[in-house]
Simulated assay, not measured.
Amino acid sequence: MLDTIQRFFQQTLAEPERSDDPAPTLERATAALLCEVMRADYHTDETQLAALRELLISHFQLPGAAVEELMEMARDEVENSVDHYQFVSLIKQHYDYAQRRELVRMMWVLANADANHNALEEHRIRRLAELLHVSHSDFIRTKLQVQGKAQ
């Protein structure tokens, strides 16, 4: 009995798109965190939307229509969520450290897409990196890499 319950929860977490639970998938959780960065400065422009689209296409190898749907779902989830816990916990559970660091790098790419450095975006990335348990040195390293100041 306990094994059956445990398998159910493992399957639900590993394959949330097959469950009836509205829990986010890894793709939606990743896109939602990226949307959080994009909206941190209360201004979303077309260059950031284009950057988000390109990041999702390259990261998940999804066709354009699927990415548009993913972006829309992620924006809706961010608007309706109370906090980042559901997204962060899913990512921490399924992404290893290198994947979480890559997500922080993607956040920097998105924040720098509009060529307008904003302290609110940096603060949001810093907070999300902490929640994802990405070290401060990797937070800084990815920032510098994206800005072209380090290798």
Rank of each mutant, 00 (worst) to 15 (best):
D3T: 12
T4N: 13
Q6V: 15
F9I: 15
Q10W: 07
Q11R: 15
T12C: 12
P16H: 08
P16T: 07
S19V: 09
D21I: 13
D21W: 09
P24W: 08
T25E: 02
L26K: 05
A29Y: 01
T30K: 06
A31L: 01
C35I: 04
E36A: 05
E36C: 03
E36G: 03
E36L: 04
H43L: 12
T47Y: 03
Q48F: 05
L49I: 10
A50P: 01
L52N: 00
L55I: 15
L55D: 02
L55V: 11
L56V: 08
S58P: 02
F60P: 00
Q61R: 07
L62S: 03
G64C: 06
G64H: 06
A66K: 00
A66D: 03
E68D: 10
E68N: 08
E69C: 00
E72K: 09
M73P: 00
R75I: 00
E77H: 05
N80S: 11
Y85F: 06
Y85I: 11
Q86H: 11
Q86V: 13
F87D: 00
V88Q: 04
K92I: 08
Q93V: 02
Y97E: 14
R100F: 02
R105N: 12
M106F: 06
M106G: 04
M106D: 07
M106A: 12
M106S: 13
M107P: 03
W108S: 02
W108Q: 03
V109D: 06
L110S: 09
A111R: 02
A113Q: 01
D114R: 12
D114E: 13
H117F: 09
H117G: 06
A119H: 10
A119P: 07
E121W: 03
H123M: 11
R127E: 15
E130N: 13
H133E: 11
S135G: 15
S137K: 14
I140P: 06
I140T: 10
R141I: 04
R141F: 08
L144V: 06
Q145R: 14
G148S: 10
K149A: 09
Q151D: 15
